[in-house]
């Protein structure tokens, strides 16, 4: 009991600090979004530009989650289960995108894939222009979010002792069957967290996207870019309406993450 009373002071300080940093701004987004009433909010959200931006963002985020679900799991599997020369450097490279500013990622992608980039120069005559196009955005998002996927799956794989695979082999399961029936189910929790994290990050990605997309209305404008563009143009209400939708989406993802993510997922599935 006395412990609870003493905790009140530091907990109170924490709330006071977080209030202006996190809670009040989040509240403000919703307050401003609905200042003109629900109809005004609804009109903005239903407008063609906003609709495109939101749908496009969700599409890109879904595609990123799918691509990284496979690529990230593969990367985590290779890094966790094999021993080879250069494993440590490779592990660093996989996690590097977290440390690099996203704008820098966008710039470097432009320099590589853009019309005057090394690869771009080769691809341009073939009619393939990844930059300022949805493919380019997907590329940037996959790059930026890969570490989240690997980071969510790898600890689970590290914990999964090799004897589980070996047990499956001696029982008669092929490598694929072992992966499908033994490893993948064990990864469920990590996989789900990774996918949700990837989705959430992709949904809000701004720095790399703004470089790579060209910010073309109704063609490559994601929701965050839309918000920024509206804000720049002084249309605060429009910006806030879409921001509120994004925030609400994030809350939903966050809720799933807390409920089914790592630490809940694999263990909880058994505990049910």
């Amino acid at each position: 009991m006395s412990d609870n009373r003493r905790a009140a002071v530091p907990a109170g300080i924490l709330v006071l600090v977080l209030l202006p940093l996190v809670l009040l701004p989040l509240g403000a987004v919703f307050v401003f979004a609905f200042r003109g009433g629900f109809p005004a909010f609804w009109n903005v959200v239903r407008s063609a530009d906003a609709q495109f931006a939101l749908r496009f963002s969700i599409l890109i985020a879904s595609a990123t989650a799918v691509v990284n679900g496979v690529l990230g799991t593969f990367a985590a599997y290779v890094l966790a289960k094999y021993r080879f020369f250069g494993k440590r450097p490779l592990g660093v490279v996989v996690n590097l995108p977290v440390a690099i500013p996203t704008v820098v990622v966008g710039t470097s992608l432009l320099l590589l894939w853009g019309p005057i980039g090394w690869l771009g120069k080769v691809l341009d005559p073939l009619g393939f222009h990844p930059m300022f196009a949805p493919v380019g955005i997907l590329l940037a998002h996959v790059f930026v979010t890969l570490p989240y996927m690997v980071g969510a799956v790898r600890p689970v794989l590290d914990e999964l002792e090799t004897t589980y695979e070996e047990a499956a082999y001696t029982i008669g399961a092929s490598r694929w069957q072992t992966f499908r029936f033994v490893i993948l189910p064990a990864l469920r929790g990590g996989l789900l967290s990774g996918i949700l994290l990837t989705f959430a990050h992709s949904l809000g990605e701004f720095g790399a996207t703004v470089m790579v997309s060209g910010n073309l209305r109704l063609r490559t404008q994601t929701a965050p870019l839309y918000i920024f563009a509206q804000f720049e143009a002084g249309k605060i209400a429009e910006a806030n309406a879409v921001a509120a939708v994004l925030a609400a989406l994030s809350f939903v993802i966050f809720f799933f993450l807390l409920t089914y993510g790592v630490g809940g997922g694999a263990g909880r599935a058994g505990r049910r």
Partner: peptide
């Protein structure tokens, strides 16, 4: 031969029971 082809039953020191399967599913796996 690969381990799959040897027809060997192996009990590991840590048992390595598949955690996401029931005891019955574990036994039926082979």
């Amino acid at each position: 031969l690969a381990p799959q082809k040897r027809g060997v039953g192996f009990v590991f020191q840590n048992y390595s029971i598949f955690r996401h399967m029931t005891a019955a599913k574990n036994i039926e796996f082979g």
